[in-house]
Design a binder for these strands. Structure first.
Lengths: 129, 129
DNA sequence: TTCACAATCACGCGGCGTCAAGGTAT
DNA sequence: GATACCTTGACGCCGCGTGATTGTGA
């Protein structure tokens, strides 16, 4: 069982973010100490990391909840009914699309940065001549 | 001179976003019609596209303003003093770092999506046996 | 006149950052 | 008893979305 500070440190998330994920039910700590301290298991931490990794895909709260819940249900070998499985496939497809969109955005951004770099280099050269 | 709706259409930005960029001074239309309609030049539109491309890098308002202003000053062949040039280099470096960070986030996200896809495929297989 | 398009409020939301005031304990 | 860590509010900010109401005119 790990306290929130430790978790924040190792997961690379802020305290506020972790508390927020608890508030909205995305990652609820397995337990609390007698004095009310949030206590996270290793599984909880993995779930936090999963959420962190998914963040760039910009799914909604509800979607993230559904996905991570389904994922770690399956990780525990739970049976998956066909409805849940269909949903999962939808999410997989949506995720792939968002990755593709992200790749494009990234490339556009890289081109801008390149011109930024090129221009700053060129203006330096111009001044030195 | 182009009206906001036309600009939104061609740039792939919402009306609200374009008005917001005006509000905060990121992209201010070159003029207004007699009745107050925002009128954008082709240069304004290019500037909007530049901002759009930079968005994934998550610079602050002030930073974006500074960058795009510097960029199109240079595009017009304006002289660049050494202070501005130093700032530009900083932004270029910062931009490169953010691109690198983005690439990593993207890869993490892709791995998650792959497991999502793999799991939905596996559970389908399991049920069909 | 009508109709598409535009303008300015103004409120709302997600995802936190950031105090403030106060309990808890490896 | 001091200190590091934690708690729950509560307000603020950014980047818009979403009406509502009113004005404009390619």
């Amino acid at each position: 069982m790990h306290q929130i500070g430790e978790v924040a440190q190792s997961a690379g998330l802020s305290l506020r973010t972790i508390r927020y994920y608890d508030e909205v039910g995305i990652v609820v700590p397995a337990g609390r100490s007698a004095g009310g301290y949030r206590l996270y298991t290793d599984q909880d931490i993995e779930r936090l990391l999963l959420v962190k990794d998914m963040k760039p895909l910009e799914f909604s709260l509800d979607e993230i909840r559904e996905i991570v819940t389904a994922l770690d249900a399956m990780a525990r070998g739970n049976p998956v009914n066909s409805k849940r499985q269909a949903r999962l496939e939808q999410f997989a497809t949506a995720g792939e699309e968002r990755c593709a969109a992200l790749r494009e955005r990234l490339q556009a951004a890289q081109r801008v940065v390149e011109t930024l770099r090129a221009n700053s280099a060129r203006s330096a050269t111009a001044r030195s001549r």
